[in-house]
Design a protein around this nucleic acid. Structure first.
Lengths: 121, 121
DNA sequence: CTTGACCTTGACCCTGGGGGCAGGGTTTAG
DNA sequence: CTAAACCCTGCCCCCAGGGTCAAGGTCAAG
């Protein structure tokens, strides 16, 4: 299959597929005319990458999952490295939420302050 | 004062000062040799921009605050436009927190799932 | 006068995950 | 034969600057 077929089958854009390749996540063969050729397995890989990116992982962080798939597993997240990646990401998200919560409080304080200052004057 | 003095006084890098200028937040005069010259007021502006950026506003969103300062106010956030900007930003942060919370739950589910699958097999 | 230290200038490439466009080659259907 | 649909590479854009470069200005000491 060509890049357009893969993109359609996996639900991403052609641009995204080429980007994944530039990040080393795909290594398609080339036809004599230069067109990229993909296998059915690549569809699974692209779907997985898409799902992981939507969870906020970076392209680089999807590596262990793809390796897990390539190693012959049905699921990308059953390898120890994948579990570690999940836990790392959860910790990141928790830190983010904590920071944003703090930020929210700061903003609310500033707003209250500014409002009070206005009514005072 | 020159750009280095301004940067030191406001606690930012020279690079940041030039970036603020490129975003239209500063308009320094130039000496005959091309050096930028800043006033004491600019220190206040840069400090304000720095503070607002650290609250997650974009450079563009700091515009109303700077205008408020330039209009002669002691505080940048006492103008109506500033209050609106605060409220907008708070709403953004709230949306972010909600999304991240949802994401966190998804990740936790996936992790649990993957762990259970492993013990099952 | 010259050296060195320190300051400034503009200009270039980099970040992440692609979007958008240009300009061209290829393939397939009518 | 031609048009549509597909593919290729390559360049610029986002955001808030960071890093580095090559050049030139300024001021003091020697």
């Amino acid at each position: 299959m060509h890049i357009g077929d893969l993109a359609a089958a996996a639900g991403v854009t052609i641009k995204a597929v080429r980007y994944y390749e530039s990040q080393g996540l795909l290594k398609p063969r080339r036809e004599p005319n230069g067109y990229r050729t993909y296998s059915a397995e690549d569809v699974v890989v692209v779907r997985e990458v898409k799902a992981l990116l939507s969870l906020g992982l970076t392209a680089e962080q999807t590596y262990p999952f793809i390796e897990c798939l390539r190693a012959g597993n049905d699921r990308a997240d059953v390898c120890p490295a994948s579990l570690t990646a999940y836990r790392t990401r959860i910790a990141e998200v928790d830190r983010w939420i904590a920071e944003l919560t703090e930020l929210r409080a700061k903003l609310a304080d500033l707003l209250t302050d500014a409002e009070n200052w206005r009514t005072k004057v």
